[in-house]
Design a protein around this nucleic acid. Structure first.
Length: 505
RNA sequence: GGCGGUAUCGUCUAACGGUUAGGACGCAGCCCUCUCACGGCUGAAAUUCGGGUUCGAUUCCCGAUUCCGCUACCA
């Protein structure tokens, strides 16, 4: 039996897509593409209590931004729809009936309050083979009572009847065989009474089967319930086509312990969400990678390597490279701490690799925001000179503002260190030298200025550093003539004059 | 508490019985240099702890410990 590989990413629209979820989506995508299979987006909105409006569109927008396109899903359709679980209620009802009929499941009337009472009175209470006969369910109640309770509209849930004392084996592509004894599993609720929807467990198995999913690649938090899922496949008689499981390690907090969570990001100063998110209820804003100035390629590359590696020393990889090299076997088993510094480094690498014109497109809006009107060509030259110094496009402004506006003040420390007694006089001479130049190219400036310095026997460093202070306002930046050639003769001389007039020690 | 998973530099990881335990981020130093960066080079930095198995364990097995997850009519 050779089935076409089909994988799904199945988030719940209970909030913005977490960066850990993004990685799960990415691994599913890489695996699907590598196997020539399909990548499906399924929305698991079976928790009506926690539903958050806007979350679903956020998920799609985030995946789109990252370039993780899916072959089937709510917005693109497909032959296995609907792709939103709340639209599949009738389907689940049919399959629950099947389990009820074959004795794998039963109806339970215990209310949440009754269960809470039980849990607080009985230590370690669990609804399972050892306790189910003390509860109010179709196993203990006479058939007629069950029917009449249902007829009078009593709320009930459907529970999965787990037979104890069996070692259930879960075959995991990353972890090998995981064995759990069925006795520790409880009779999970498959169908809720509260919102008349199935629970994750039921919906997940039914959908994966119906959508012909071949590989379930999901977070490690699902490992403990994987045996339950295996048992469900068996109860339905779908063991033959049960997907291969692969449980991914979790993304951990960068410092201390625990799973990376929503709060960590803004507390530690980096995003945990792909896109900025505004909570519709509290209006609280959580920062996103996109708004933080990250390039989607960098985010994808960084994330891919958090829990997987191609087995060589390559770190900068295109999506195509990753698709080619990806294997579940090379995924690690232990959680990975999130390293913000490394994420920055990846972004820097991608800025370096992008053409100047691509960076300019991203930089122009920043310039506009600062009220700078320049030609694209000019901005492109600045970018070419400066992009290797930044990790983020938005940092370019801080590094390059002196190209566009004359310094309003002179850095005190630099003045102290670089502004000498004879600096004003020397800069006056320099100004004259430059003023006499018709050709203000880098080469011609350099030739003439060097000749002048040499003829006067001046110290090169003293001249150039004072010059830099006058033009830039502080002791930083690329080679001086690269700057002056770009800002032009007039601007250069005017800045020199301003400096001579206003810098005093 | 119970159950499961996990364990190599600070961090991400390589080494699938034999290596001076490799790479990357970060850190330090040096070089480059008109400054600041970038870049290049060099360096410090790790096999959780016990037991086994083996001629030989980072690697295989057992135990402890660690950290993580699950333990809901949440996913």
């Amino acid at each position: 039996m050779n089935r076409k590989v089909r994988v799904r990413f199945a988030p719940s629209p209970t909030g913005p897509l977490h960066i850990g979820g993004v990685r799960t989506a990415l691994y599913n995508y890489l695996f699907a593409k590598q196997q020539g299979g399909d990548f499906i987006l399924r929305i698991e909105d079976t928790d009506s209590q926690r539903f958050v409006s806007g979350a679903e569109s956020y998920i799609e927008e985030a995946l789109t931004w990252l370039g993780l396109t899916f072959d089937e899903g709510v917005s693109v359709g497909g032959n296995y729809g609907p792709y939103k679980q709340s639209e599949r209620k009738e389907i689940y009802k049919k399959y629950v009936a099947q389990l009820l009929k074959n004795g794998s499941a039963y109806i339970a009337f215990d209310t949440p309050e009754e269960l809470d009472a039980k849990r607080s009175s009985v230590a370690n209470f669990q609804y399972d083979a050892s306790t189910r006969l003390e509860m109010r369910n179709s196993l203990t109640l006479p058939d007629a009572d069950v029917q009449s309770l249902i007829a009078e509209g009593k709320q009930y849930v459907v529970r999965f009847k787990i037979e104890p004392h069996e070692d259930v084996i879960v075959k995991d592509a990353i972890r090998g065989e995981v064995k759990i004894n069925s006795s520790i599993l409880d009779d999970k609720v498959l169908y809720k009474s509260a919102d008349n929807l199935p629970t994750y467990h039921l919906a997940n198995i039914v959908d994966d089967h119906l959508m012909e999913i071949t590989h379930v690649i999901r977070g490690e938090e699902w490992l403990p319930s994987a045996p339950l899922h295996v048992l469900l496949y068996r109860a339905f008689g779908w063991t033959e086509t049960m997907p291969v499981f692969a449980h991914l390690p979790l993304l951990l907090k960068p410092e201390g312990n625990g799973k990376l969570s929503k709060r960590d990001g803004d507390r530690l100063g980096f995003p945990v969400f792909p896109l900025e998110w505004k909570d519709p209820k509290t209006n609280e804003i959580s920062s996103g990678y996109r708004e933080g100035g990250y390039l989607p390629e960098a985010v994808v590359n960084f994330l891919a390597l958090l829990g997987w590696n191609p087995g060589n020393d390559e770190e900068i990889m295109s999506v195509d490279d990753m698709v080619r090299l990806f294997t579940l076997e090379k995924c690690s088993k232990s959680g990975a701490k999130f390293d913000f510094e490394k994420a920055k480094w990846f972004n820097h690498q991608y800025i370096l690799r992008k053409s100047n014109s691509e960076i300019v497109k991203l930089f122009l809006p920043v310039l506009k925001e600062k009220g700078i009107e320049v030609s694209e060509g000019c901005a492109e030259q600045v970018v070419g000179l400066m992009k290797d110094r930044v990790s983020f496009v938005k940092d370019l402004w801080e590094q390059t503002s002196f190209f566009f506006v004359a310094p309003a003040a002179y850095d005190e420390k630099t003045v102290k260190k670089r502004w000498k007694e004879d600096s004003p006089a020397q800069l006056k001479e320099l100004s004259d030298v430059l003023a006499g130049l018709d050709d203000f190219s880098v080469e011609n400036q350099e030739k003439n200025v060097m000749a002048w310095i040499e003829s006067k026997g001046y110290h090169l460093g003293n001249i150039m550093n004072a010059f830099r202070l006058a033009i830039v306002g502080e002791g930083k930046g690329p080679h001086m003539f690269d700057i002056t050639a770009l800002i032009g003769k007039e601007e250069t001389i005017s800045r020199l004059e301003k400096a001579m007039a206003s810098i005093h020690k």
